[in-house]
Design a protein around this nucleic acid. Structure first.
Lengths: 147, 147
DNA sequence: CTCCACCCTCCCACAGGGTGAGGGTCAATC
DNA sequence: GATTGACCCTCACCCTGTGGGAGGGTGGAG
């Protein structure tokens, strides 16, 4: 277990390859606000602090942040990521557990895409038949008012 | 201007074709909660009340609720709907204004669909190469950890 | 020593809903 | 005339995920 010595001097910490929250944010792509938020909701474990109460991040923490960032960019929910993180850390996980989470998310994505595509189809049809000029007649409003 | 006489008897109101919030909800498909919410944010004008402080809806109000419901089901934001409603009520609106709102929304939808499709593509690729069994090796986690 | 960039905590905002508490009211049945 | 059950009222808090700002402490460079 790597365990950061708590309550370091700031300069000392940076000298040992540890970084403050701003550098962790830049290195991971996760904003400072969100790093603190992820810690608050327990997604990220509490990190060590300097004497001045500054958070101090190690390479592992930044790696975890990048993991989270990547997972978010693939649309995983925070709760999914919570499970993915614990599977990632569990070296004897069954890959089936990971796949199950991914498949569930994939289904949700596909369902939402389908819904939005049907909205697009309807809207394009209506929009195509709307003159789009100074006249008030408009099939878009007619549809909303009638359907 | 149809103006509902304020402070009616409940039975009297129902006798005149006016309805209470529950009936308006059923007739429009908008939940009771959301009708009150839309009123609170000013999307729906304040309606008359009975002596017992019950909201009383006329046919026009129910029609407006159906308009909102339909617009929401096409994915329009509340702010878009606010504009669409005022254009709907403005008989000399230019249809171009309506079309502009619809086109903006359409673009947003298409952009989000594209984003989600690229998530799907990535996830399907990763998922296809994951055994999904008892073994811990998993390209999904590898991608999240490395990329 | 001063200045600025950074850090801290705490609270608020957004969309678009949902849930529930703690009350009042209406109409039908006994 | 009382009870009962289905409504209605307001207020206030919950969710997801992110950003903004207030108000105050710190680190390091000039």
């Amino acid at each position: 277990m790597r365990r950061i010595e708590p309550f370091l001097e700031h300069a000392d910490a940076l000298g040992r390859g540890l970084v403050d929250i701003g550098r962790a944010a830049k290195a991971s792509g996760v904003s400072v606000k969100m790093i603190r938020h992820y810690e608050a909701i327990g997604l990220l474990k509490k990190v060590a602090r300097t004497y001045a109460n500054y958070r101090v991040y190690g390479a592992n923490d930044v790696h975890t942040l990048r993991f989270i960032k990547r997972a978010r960019s693939l649309g995983f929910s925070i709760e999914d990521i919570r499970e993915l993180l614990s599977l990632w850390q569990n070296k004897s996980r069954p890959s089936a557990a990971v796949k199950r989470i991914a498949s569930g998310h994939l289904e949700g994505l596909k369902r939402r895409i389908t819904e939005m595509q049907s909205m697009v189809a309807t809207l394009e049809h209506l929009s195509d038949h709307c003159h789009g000029d100074h006249r008030p007649d408009c099939p878009i409003l007619e549809d909303l008012a009638k359907a």
